[in-house]
Design a protein around this nucleic acid. Structure first.
Lengths: 136, 136
DNA sequence: AAATTATTAAACCAACCGGTTGCATAACGG
DNA sequence: CCGTTATGCAACCGGTTGGTTTAATAATTT
């Protein structure tokens, strides 16, 4: 996928898709750490961990400040904002209410015809919940 | 990365890391679509698109209902909730306040004492924002 | 029955990922 | 200086990804 020079969101999601990299982010959230500190708890060689940090840098999730022989890394969380923004647009879809509603609709759909019930959603094609009802 | 049988969060982030798959999700948010409908706007062969849908199914982001020869897909957004939950834990780190604060701290930390010149570019070391002050 | 449509499956490919090892370099502490 | 520490870099490797093409299957239409 050539994560470099790919859209930032691609790089961010890709960066977050590996547990070692999420672990790094979590620990950086508590404050700066140098590469050795970051690498030591990861069951892998130092170069491997270093590569993970580079991936995070490529996604702008980590920034590095060289101080003597130590490379201090710190979390740069802005890209996570975009992640949240992207996912938030589907919040309505995962809220429990809709799951229940879906199940209900599926149950009453099959073959109904004489629809006296106004709330009967005739089509078997289900439309997405576009509006959020305030009611109960 | 063996996305199958990997932790769900890995699979979800991986699934979201490809623009074609995000595009599929976006369009499914508007309602069910079958594979052909999903594939047609994606500049790639049908089998390629079909594979993308399978990746999304592996991440539990899409579910398929076979109806005749058509495979109707619908969005299953719960996993996105976990994504949001994961990222939300870092919200404090990307909120603008901290950026400004960081800059400020950078300015006054180094060897301050009698710092009359506010634009002194002295600083280097920046510590992570660990505590959230309520004040202004 | 034949043609069309919707989809899977299989084989193949180049590129990439995630890991390793070995060696080079640079900074710090005696 | 020398040894140690912190890191980079290049080469290599097996497995996966993301794409293709071609062929097969199955449901629908004519």
């Amino acid at each position: 996928m050539v994560i470099d020079r790919a859209p930032l969101l691609d790089r961010v999601f890709h960066a977050l898709a590996h547990p070692a990299r999420r672990s790094i982010i979590r620990r950086l959230a508590a404050g700066e750490q140098n590469l050795s500190e970051l690498a030591s708890p990861l069951k892998m060689s130092f170069p491997a961990a270093s590569k993970h940090v580079r991936v995070l840098e490529g996604a702008r999730l980590v920034r590095r400040r060289i101080s003597g022989r130590q490379h201090m890394c710190r979390l740069e969380a802005e890209p996570l904002k975009e992640v949240t923004q992207w996912t938030e647009q589907f919040r309505g879809h995962w809220e429990a209410r809709f799951q229940a509603l879906d199940a209900l609709l599926e149950e009453m759909q099959p073959q109904d015809a004489a629809v006296t019930n106004p709330s009967a959603p005739t089509p078997r094609r289900r439309s997405a919940p576009r509006i959020r009802r305030k009611t109960s």
